[in-house]
């Protein structure tokens, strides 16, 4: 019921894409994610400017929107006691680096995180890399790029340009971590590093 209504709304917005800056997530294939992800995703502010790193002022505008949504997402995570990453961008905002972590069995596993903004962004989603885990799991391309679910790409394509980095993290990396880390830990591929964990905690 809810999805039907939303679908209808999204369709209406598709017909008039430029009339409203405030828009909602488009797409009927939200079923691929768990309910908490979905509720979180809907709360992340959507973006409006369609611009890549080579678009100059438009990109700056876009970058501002990216930051706003990231801030909102981060503060939301914090308020829910669900903070799980730190990122920072270079000056022109094309390369983002940072860390992400996942708590499994009361132990925090932290990994390096990095990705570049592709030239065709936002039509193309950024490819998130976890270099430390390269070669440790099959759900990963060469160079530590994570494999996203089949649902991600169509949803991203449908919601271009409204989805940004925050959405990509929320939809892409967070589920991946939740799915893969327990397997990696249990299989012994990833060992807990007490010092890094305690350092990040403190």
């Amino acid at each position: 019921m809810v999805s039907n209504i939303k679908k209808r709304e999204l369709e209406a917005q598709q017909q008039t894409p430029n009339q409203s800056t405030k828009s909602t997530i488009r797409g009927s294939t939200m079923e691929g994610w768990d309910p908490s992800t979905k509720s979180t995703l809907t709360q992340i502010p959507l973006l409006s400017t369609k611009a890549g790193p080579r678009d100059g002022a438009a990109w700056t505008q876009r970058l501002k929107e990216e930051y706003r949504s990231l801030i909102a997402y981060t503060s939301m995570n914090k308020s829910k006691d669900n903070d799980w990453f730190r990122i920072a961008a270079n000056a022109d905002g094309t390369r983002w680096t940072g860390k992400c972590w996942y708590v499994h069995n009361l132990l925090k596993y932290e990994f390096d995180l990095q990705f570049d903004i592709p030239v065709t962004y936002p039509s193309t989603a950024p490819e998130i890399e976890l270099p430390q885990l390269d070669g440790k799991t099959q759900k990963m391309y060469r160079g530590g790029k994570i494999c996203l679910t089949v649902h991600f790409k169509p949803l991203w394509a449908k919601n271009c340009p409204r989805f940004g980095i925050a959405h990509a993290l929320c939809l892409g990396l967070a589920p991946w971590l939740a799915a893969e880390v327990p397997i990696l830990v249990d299989s012994g591929m990833v060992k807990h590093k007490d010092d890094t964990a305690s350092a990040s905690e403190s």
Partner: peptide, 20 residues
């Protein structure tokens, strides 16, 4: 504005997350 946003983001990230 962008810088401001960067700062804010940094700040947001640095902020102590509420314990629940």
């Amino acid at each position: 504005e962008l810088l401001e946003l960067q700062r804010q983001f940094e700040f947001a990230q640095q902020a102590k997350s509420s314990i629940r």
